[in-house]
């Protein structure tokens, strides 16, 4: 191997690489990817078990039907919450810090979704769909329950952001981080809704 004269470029003014996204946002993006894979696992389990249903009968005949229409109301609340948050988030990023009402509205709409879901769950349990009444029920409560847990955590995060906003200590990075998680909770819902409820 000949020793050629190799020119190594000299960097007279090394500079820091520009951050493409801030730390919090990048961390949350990674976290969201993990969550997407988690729900992908649940949905693939659902699809496989549904495909194996005897005689392709789905939902199973002896189980209560899922309230697709009523859940459309909840879904609307959730999507509205996402849109409201997007508006608040965009305003905040442009420097307008007067987003208290919007942020509160997004949080309340999100809470409405969770509360109404809870009401429906109680009704379903009354009608006999439980986590052990059938694999249909097991899938429903596991998948929708996983989403509900994430929604609750995300609402808590929104509450934290609201508290910070009120104290004028909310940074753009923190707002984006929390918003991203809520967007995930909102955007994953239609996939679950149309796959599981229909």
């Amino acid at each position: 191997m000949s020793a050629q004269a190799r020119v190594i470029p000299f960097r007279p003014r090394p500079h820091r690489a520009k951050k493409i996204v801030s730390n919090g946002v990048l961390g949350m993006i990674l976290f969201v990817f993990v969550e997407i894979m988690l729900f992908a696992g649940f949905i693939s389990a659902f699809v496989i078990i549904k495909a194996r249903a005897v005689g392709s009968v789905w939902p199973p005949p002896n189980q209560p039907r899922l309230p697709f229409a009523e859940t459309a109301v909840n879904t609307t609340a959730l999507i509205a919450s996402g849109i409201v948050l997007l508006i608040a988030h965009t305003m905040f990023q442009r420097g307008n810090r007067d987003i208290r009402t919007l942020l509160a509205a997004a949080t309340v709409l999100g809470g409405t979704f969770v509360a109404l879901q809870g009401v429906e769950w109680l009704a379903l349990i009354q009608e006999g769909l439980t986590i052990t009444s059938s694999t249909y029920g097991a899938l429903f409560y596991t998948i929708i329950g996983a989403h509900a847990l994430h929604a609750v955590a995300a609402i808590a995060a929104l509450g934290w952001a609201f508290a910070r906003l009120v104290g004028d200590r909310l940074t753009k990075e923190a707002m984006s981080t929390v918003a991203l998680f809520w967007y995930f909770v909102v955007l994953v819902w239609p996939f679950l809704y149309f796959q599981v409820y229909l």
Binding site: I36, M37, A40, G41, T142
Partner: peptide, 13 residues
Amino acid sequence: MLSVGPLLAGAIM
């Protein structure tokens, strides 16, 4: 991080 999600789902089940 990309591969463990499905197994976490499976483990919960």
